[in-house]
Amino acid sequence: MTALKHLLSIADLGPGGLEDLLDLTDSFVEVSERRIPKVPTLRGKTVVSLFYEESTRTRLSFESAAKRLSADTMNFTVGTSSVKKGESLRDTVTTIEAMGVDAIVVRHASAGVPWQVAQWVGASVINAGDGWHEHPTQAILDCYTIRQRLGSLVDRHIAIVGDVKHSRVARSDVQAFTALGATVTLVAPPTLLPPSLVGWPVTVSHDLDDVLPKVDVVYVLRMQRERMTESLLPSLREYTSTYGLTAERARKLSQHALVMHPGPMNRGVEIAAEVADLPSSVITRQVANGVAVRMAVLFRLLGSGMELAHG
């Protein structure tokens, strides 16, 4: 295992790095299942979350992960901060670093902000979602959840359905799923696909009913209405009737197939309320695994000491 300073993208993990992290996560799942789910590993370390976009699960998940490792946590939310007074990103980051932090968890509406922050600070930077670009910890927890339920991703067929265009989750997931040997099909109307898919190791379909019986996992993306600046869809009802995972469509899935969603769900839009609660749905499992995966990431960056290894 090599040293890892930041986690900005799935590619940062390098060949084999993703598998190593999934193996490491097993130990933290065990810790999370204990009566006292806390270990002293990162005592004295400080983790700050710097969120320029709203979030429930990712921010709480990182905070919970840091606390289970006995790190101290600080929270920065734009709404209640000096950003409202016009402070620049650089000044905000410099101020936070001057307080002595070991890791900064960054979420921002613009792609590339975590890279920029990593240039400015000595602390480790973790990308918790930047614009449409990447959300690596989500992809890692998705891989972990699939591996936990299906054993392995090798030769598994995964359909990613919905608003791929605006989805950082899809971009990170495609890289991670294919790196672990899965085949990925994107299912979306042409207006919700990226303008170019050159270099994406995926196939594309516009027919969800045709794809569903063939897949091991159907990964439903959230309709990101807040990022839709132009009219990409005639109506949400029409979207639901052609691309929504309705109860009727879910019956086409094979017995072992998993239903996943990164949350927050628009029940009744991209996924029917009753589908999200089926036994094949692992959506709450994803959230639970998210904490363990983020513990593994924080440990890998702050505690493993791989930079001290020989050779």
């Binding site: 130990s27 799942v29 065990e30 810790v31 590993t41 493993s304 000491g305 290894a309």
Partner: peptide, 26 residues
């Protein structure tokens, strides 16, 4: 029991859990 997460030399040398802890009872 894997004690990696409890070591006092975390940050001084490489530390990595090698196996998952399994204590089946209180």
């Amino acid at each position: 029991l894997d004690v990696a997460l409890y070591r006092d030399d975390i940050g001084l040398r490489p530390v990595m859990p090698e196996a998952v802890t399994d204590i089946p009872l209180d």
